[in-house]
Design a protein around this nucleic acid. Sequence first.
DNA 1: CACCAGGCAAGTA
DNA 2: TACTTGCATGGT
Length: 215
Amino acid sequence: MKRKLEKIFKRLYSVFGQQYWWPADSAFEVIIGAILTQNTNWSNVQKAILALKKRKLLTAPKLYQLSPKQLADLIRSAGYYNIKAARIKNFLEFFFQRYAGKIKLMAAGNWQALRVELLTVKGVGPETADSILLYALNKPVFVVDAYTKRIFSRHGLIEPEADYSQLQGIFMRHLKNNVKLFNQYHALLVKLGKDYCRKQNPKCEICPLWSTKNA
DNA sequence: CACCAGGCAAGTA
DNA sequence: TACTTGCATGGT
């Protein structure tokens, strides 16, 4: 499996190149984006982020001051706006109570412990927590998402019923714990997913991974 | 028109 | 515990 994972990475990298994730100007922006992008197209999230930026509201204190209704209206384009407004509020509550609203403080300790804390926040599940750890705080955590599972399942590399932690374990056991590698690998899988491995997409048959056997 | 997108929690039996 | 449902906009 280790060899296979390395081969897949090389193949994806040669086909798609650098992905430069996560597109954001700050760690805080990554965190808000991670919540907003839950089961949502990224272009819809960008509009919501832009709406917050235009109003100079993309900071923890500013967002914390907004009412749920005000916040929901601003992030409307991201979909599920009432739920996501509440989830952002839940995170901010935790962020101020536990880390005084300081990214540096939150990033300072042991990340495994922080992961457990993040998962106690209602609205922060495994993928959101791991996205925050990897892309906002540069911790060596592999982010698994729907594309990762679909791609590996379709290629017969995992059982279709494998859960998040099992899939994550495969990557983290076999790959070097390297932030840049994990960042790039996940981004490449999303790129592959967007281009070839959508839920119903005949193009899946010409996915560049099908030729890794011979590569 | 139907289907989907960088999930998660709550409800049901 | 194991399945199902709600959440919602905007692009294809």
